[in-house]
Amino acid sequence: MDNIFNWIAENQQMIYIVVLMVFLGIEVIGRVPSVLHTPLMSGANAIHGVVIIGAIIVMGKAEPGNYLALILGFLAVVLGTLNVVGGFVVTDRMLEMFKKKKS
């Protein structure tokens, strides 16, 4: 039990963020019209591309001789970038069409 309490105490900042973000995430998209479900999903998809930061850190910390870390890290950077760039570009393409009809 002590372990758990200690862990919570040590990570309280992070835990606060998690709890607040859960509520915020739900609140922020609570009233989205169904027309926007697809672009919103795609936009959220791009945002979770933040994993790329973890990939960059892994890659940047890899020892020059550690080929497993280098190769996997490199792969992670490529895949993460695909997620971010592809995600934002696809979302933009979808939303571009929404815009046209307004004019």
């Binding site: 963020i17 979770h48 591309g49 933040v50």
Partner: peptide
């Protein structure tokens, strides 16, 4: 959520925020 795990791992707030935000919003969506 997987991205948020990375946030915990590196004590990285932006990964945590982005990950959990999408995790929660995605579930509601």
């Amino acid at each position: 959520v997987a991205a948020a795990c990375g946030g915990f791992l590196y004590n990285n707030k932006v990964m945590l925020t982005g990950g959990i935000l999408v995790g929660a919003a995605g579930t509601l969506l």
